[in-house]
Nucleic acid binder design. Sequence first.
DNA 1: TTTAATTATATCGCTTACGATATAATTTCT
DNA 2: AGAAATTATATCGTAAGCGATATAATTAAA
Lengths: 143, 143
Amino acid sequence: MEQLKLENQICFPFYAISRLITRAYQPHLESLGITYPQFLVLLVLWEKDGQTVNQIADKLILNTNTITPLLKRMEQLELVSREKSKEDERKVMVNLTRKGQKMQVEAACIPDELLTKLAGKDIQREDLSEMKNQLNHWIALIK
Amino acid sequence: MEQLKLENQICFPFYAISRLITRAYQPHLESLGITYPQFLVLLVLWEKDGQTVNQIADKLILNTNTITPLLKRMEQLELVSREKSKEDERKVMVNLTRKGQKMQVEAACIPDELLTKLAGKDIQREDLSEMKNQLNHWIALIK
DNA sequence: TTTAATTATATCGCTTACGATATAATTTCT
DNA sequence: AGAAATTATATCGTAAGCGATATAATTAAA
């Protein structure tokens, strides 16, 4: 059954690379005391502080049952605060704490460090950039 | 900080697409009573039955602490059997059961069904095939 | 041939990830 | 206004995924 060979699947490389990337980030994030999904939440909030749970979930394409406990752990780490919106009490506003804001400075170099490491393995920035655009296009189509 | 925008990350689209693919497979696999990682294990065993835990882990780029409980659950589902190798008692041989073998027939159409669905969203097989090759190349480089 | 190192797998603890379901606040409908 | 529907978030249960560590079998070294 040729169509069932692992080698012929498009799904597997995405699954594998996703995990390999998380592994590659891990040592860099460990020194900050955060995980990869927590880093993604920070990326969203650094770009625009003060977003609702749903806004963050939408951007990361995650469900609230994933993001709620994640945000609670980040609250424990004192990276974010969560409080009900005054206008609409169903909404929970998530804000960066001072600590969460400051972490941006330390994190700023991480993406570049990883790109440099990949360049050493003959994976160039232009290739990654092209790939990124292609993938973002597909995500928009299938989301 | 331009380099920290979610939009500019290459890591995020991989993370997102990987989960979107798992979600896309889910309804197809649900009727078989298996999960996406379990499906990947079956792909590996359908290709070559009777492999050790490590051989399967290597092919899926997973650690034994992920694959061992996964295989145990598949044993519960009576999809595979696990028994110590006679030559080397440290090794555990994983074999498909009759049920695990038979499932290949029902699963054979799934990849094609998903490709057809993607074609409807303007994602063509040639593009995916090219992407697959590119990604497999990268995996080999960074693994 | 004991001892030490290596190999193969498993266990533990914690963090995602998500389907199903619950709860409370807000809107919409009648 | 009061009931019904919708929206926003949370809770529960289960399955990954992985670092750290443990255990047993095999191999290498002294």
